[in-house]
Design a protein around this nucleic acid. Sequence first.
DNA 1: TGACAATATGACCTGGTGGTCATATTATAA
DNA 2: TTATAATATGACCACCAGGTCATATTGTCA
Lengths: 195, 195
Amino acid sequence: MPKDTFLNLSEEKKKRIFDAAVQEFSERRFSDASINQIVKNAGIPKGSFYQYFEDKEDIYLYLAEEMSKDIHIMIEPFNPNDSFFESVIQRAKGTIKVGKTRPEYAKIGALTVIDNSEFILQLLRSSNRQYIEIIERDKQRGLIKPEIDSEVVIKMLYIYVFNEYLYSGFDETRYLKKVENAVQIIKQGIAVRQD
Amino acid sequence: MPKDTFLNLSEEKKKRIFDAAVQEFSERRFSDASINQIVKNAGIPKGSFYQYFEDKEDIYLYLAEEMSKDIHIMIEPFNPNDSFFESVIQRAKGTIKVGKTRPEYAKIGALTVIDNSEFILQLLRSSNRQYIEIIERDKQRGLIKPEIDSEVVIKMLYIYVFNEYLYSGFDETRYLKKVENAVQIIKQGIAVRQD
DNA sequence: TGACAATATGACCTGGTGGTCATATTATAA
DNA sequence: TTATAATATGACCACCAGGTCATATTGTCA
């Protein structure tokens, strides 16, 4: 949580700092991101940064919260009627949509999957939880084989989907196609059926 | 390629430097690994390092070559009769085997998948190529659906398998089980068949 | 032995990091 | 107006990175 000193700042200044942080975290993974760079981008003195935030984690969490407010306006929440497979594709479409108006946000998301700091791993774990729930629900619905290890499914898909976003770059149709391929593979497998 | 000055060194000294580099690269990703740390581990002066190697990439490539000599003694090459699925599991078992006698080697491999430097990405790409070939072969054999995007398959599995190794830690049975689960999912899919 | 080349060495360079702190400035209230 | 509290500021700290280079040491051969 940012300190009160930060929260009391003018909206203009808060936004300047927010934007500077977004820029930095969209270019470098959390582990590699530099506070020096953020203060330079924001045009504030180094000392002020520590007057506003505890440390890098602090500003990152603030960022995450602000971004998620922003994102929730842009993309609709999971539709409970959608299957797990549809949900993943919907979310990929959401990522593309976010990427169009806020490319940095999508970039920040993508960079999390290649960060192995304890801090980021924990964030990832909690963001995966909702997908696990969807899979479990679909098992009950009789859509997904009950014996499936949902952790494995999520990890494969999640890492893949963001990784692909990172390297597909601006090519949205390619990205969506890759994600659809991945989902199809997870759904149906790749083995030829020996009926 | 190391400089001649390095190659002319005594076996003892070469090994000391090799070991020091292995240690460093097994603890930190290529991008994060420190030459300073390597020279400290090896007990050689900083200046000597640059007398032996061009830079970090140079020593990494040397390492990779030496390690692969070592590894090829420990694990058998892909069996051409094995399906893609069996090959992946065999390779996972190989990783465990390597991990038992040379835990650092397996760690180095695992760390590659979370490095996004151009240098490492290129290495990964070329090491994926052989899996792509196996998949294409299995398509011809009628084992794998011909319409499958093999790049997607490889990327999902490859990243997953090493990632899991990184976080399963020493728990080999857990690791192998997760890999088998992943392979099974890729093979058969997770959807309940609506016959 | 002496001359020259090859090698070894660590101090040093530039530039980066996260973080601190004494001081200056500004806002607040008596 | 004055005293006090809140905030702003950038120089500074210790530490790390990759890389260089003048000098010292060692090996080689005539």
